[in-house]
Design a protein around this nucleic acid. Structure first.
Lengths: 151, 151
DNA sequence: CCAAATTAGTTTAATATTGTACTGTTTTAA
DNA sequence: TTAAAACAGTACAATATTAAACTAATTTGG
């Protein structure tokens, strides 16, 4: 926070970039959300299932960080998913405070039917960009994201 | 949706770009959200106040589109803001179905104290990028966003 | 002109989300 | 060793959010 006074063009470019970034992300997410609710899942539930699907069993704490949600909310989402036998809680062998969340076989089956379509939708929406542009977009976003998390 | 089969590199680049985009946006938004709650506002409330501040009086329908929220939610947010005399409802002279939302003088005063800090935070976070990179990021996000909204 | 469809906003009920306080567990450092 | 701090998860209360049914006003097409 050393440099409080940015020249106007920098300032305007920064704001424009953020607003456009945010709007694009929200627009895509809103489209995807329709697909998610069609499958009788909430965005939070889907986020957790997707994380478990791609990364394997995770603790609730890890899930909270992944989907940027409060741990109280994770407890509730897991409660609901467990009631439907989509995931199950397991005790961690190393730390009796933590519970490890796993997909049940039915859960894995279910999410593996939804994810491919979900990804296809993302690819379709992003495909207005060339591959070079996609890579550049990724680079720029990563640069921003990393610097914030370093703070 | 003509081209269902994208070559793998395109597919992976598209997914990477989206995930990184989304993560960067969410990370920034989470940081900003702290600032918002410090001022005893919710994200939804702030979104509405910011829109009114930058764009002037708007109907609830317009606000719903702006902040990508359901109209029922807009009703509630406006109810709460109106109770605190931050905004007020006015009848539209042209259409008796619509209500126009305006900032009250106190509301304008309040939001105009918060917004500059908010923007400064955005500028600071985005300033890891050069101006050229900011402009490129904007261009890429706009390209994606526009094509989706055109559908 | 007027019935049907559309639109803006509200209400209600169900669910999601958060923050705080709490329990039990592990880590830490004196 | 052990008291204090940190951590993982839960319970609960307060709000936020959504979807659906509803009211009232406007637009459209025959």
């Amino acid at each position: 926070m050393a440099d409080t006074k940015k020249p106007i063009p920098t300032r305007q470019a920064a704001l424009d970039a953020y607003i456009t970034l945010r709007r694009a992300g929200n627009t895509i997410a809103a489209k995807l959300n329709r697909h998610i609710t069609d499958n009788h899942l909430t965005a939070g539930q889907f986020g957790i299932l997707e994380a478990l699907f791609h990364l394997g069993p995770l603790s609730q704490q890890q899930l909270a960080k992944k989907i940027l949600s409060s741990k109280g909310n994770i407890t509730m989402i897991i409660d609901n998913l467990e009631k439907q036998a989509i995931v199950k809680r397991t005790a961690s062998p190393h730390d009796r405070r933590t519970t490890i969340i796993q997909l049940t076989p039915q859960g894995k089956k279910m999410i593996s039917k939804i994810v491919p379509n979900h990804l296809k939708k993302i690819v379709t929406m992003m495909s207005v960009l060339t591959v070079t542009e996609m890579m550049e977009l990724k680079r720029l976003c990563k640069k921003v994201g990393l610097s914030i998390n370093k703070e």
